[in-house]
Simulated assay, not measured.
Amino acid sequence: MYQQIMEQIKQRIAVGDWPPKTPLPSVRELATETKVSIITVKRAYLELGREGVIVTQQGKGSWVNDTLDLTILQKEELIQHLEQAGKLAKSLAIPENKILQMIKQFME
């Protein structure tokens, strides 16, 4: 569950919802909001801190790291979307060349 919280936070950062220096909800607030235990949220914040995605200071809270390289998170986000699109295209029996054509169209 903590990994899902981590992915959701990374996604919000990658798409620009939470730019650098944005304060994150407190552990208690996020636990209440997501209906998970405080321990689960603490673990997610700890792991995000280890990865350098967020900064946490005792008594001051957590916020998006302002030295974070957003391109890494954005590439991870893109890969996840492409993976989902690929699986969906396969289930719909859409040929590879058609998918590539669609991607090219969206890049123009």
Score class of each variant (00 low, 15 high):
residue 32 T to M: 14
residue 28 R to Y: 13
residue 32 T to C: 11
residue 58 Q to R: 04
residue 63 W to D: 12
residue 23 P to S: 14
residue 39 I to E: 13
residue 36 V to E: 04
residue 36 V to H: 09
residue 62 S to D: 04
residue 35 K to G: 12
residue 15 V to N: 06
residue 39 I to R: 15
residue 17 D to C: 12
residue 63 W to T: 13
residue 45 Y to L: 05
residue 40 T to Y: 12
residue 65 N to H: 10
residue 56 T to K: 05
residue 54 I to Y: 03
residue 19 P to T: 13
residue 59 G to S: 02
residue 57 Q to M: 09
residue 30 L to K: 06
residue 43 R to P: 01
residue 50 R to C: 03
residue 29 E to G: 09
residue 42 K to A: 06
residue 22 T to P: 06
residue 60 K to C: 06
residue 13 I to F: 00
residue 39 I to S: 14
residue 18 W to S: 10
residue 16 G to W: 05
residue 42 K to V: 05
residue 23 P to R: 15
residue 19 P to L: 12
residue 31 A to K: 10
residue 12 R to K: 10
residue 29 E to I: 08
residue 32 T to R: 15
residue 39 I to N: 13
residue 45 Y to D: 03
residue 24 L to A: 01
residue 56 T to D: 02
residue 25 P to K: 12
residue 47 E to L: 03
residue 12 R to P: 01
residue 49 G to W: 03
residue 24 L to N: 00
residue 64 V to R: 00
residue 32 T to Q: 14
residue 16 G to E: 07
residue 51 E to R: 11
residue 42 K to M: 07
residue 54 I to M: 03
residue 28 R to I: 12
residue 34 T to N: 09
residue 47 E to N: 03
residue 57 Q to H: 11
residue 48 L to I: 08
residue 64 V to H: 00
residue 63 W to H: 14
residue 22 T to H: 08
residue 31 A to P: 09
residue 20 P to Q: 09
residue 48 L to R: 02
residue 15 V to Y: 04
residue 38 I to R: 15
residue 57 Q to P: 05
residue 60 K to R: 11
residue 49 G to E: 08
residue 21 K to G: 12
residue 12 R to H: 11
residue 41 V to H: 03
residue 51 E to T: 11
residue 31 A to V: 12
residue 65 N to K: 10
residue 16 G to V: 06
residue 25 P to V: 10
residue 65 N to S: 11
residue 42 K to L: 07
residue 61 G to K: 05
residue 35 K to T: 11
residue 43 R to I: 02
residue 44 A to T: 00
residue 48 L to Q: 04
residue 41 V to N: 05
residue 36 V to C: 06
residue 47 E to P: 00
residue 36 V to G: 08
residue 23 P to E: 14
residue 31 A to Y: 11
residue 18 W to I: 11
residue 47 E to M: 02
residue 18 W to H: 13
residue 53 V to W: 01
residue 48 L to C: 04
residue 33 E to K: 15
residue 24 L to C: 03
residue 15 V to C: 04
residue 16 G to L: 06
residue 64 V to S: 00
residue 31 A to Q: 11
residue 48 L to D: 02
residue 31 A to H: 10
residue 25 P to N: 13
residue 28 R to F: 08
residue 46 L to I: 05
residue 26 S to N: 08
residue 55 V to E: 04
residue 49 G to Y: 09
residue 39 I to M: 14
residue 33 E to R: 15
residue 27 V to E: 12
residue 32 T to P: 07
residue 57 Q to C: 09
residue 44 A to W: 00
residue 60 K to Q: 11
residue 56 T to W: 02
residue 29 E to N: 12
residue 50 R to A: 05
residue 34 T to W: 07
residue 41 V to F: 04
residue 18 W to D: 10
residue 16 G to R: 08
residue 42 K to I: 05
residue 19 P to H: 11
residue 37 S to L: 11
residue 37 S to C: 12
residue 43 R to Q: 09
residue 42 K to T: 06
residue 33 E to N: 15
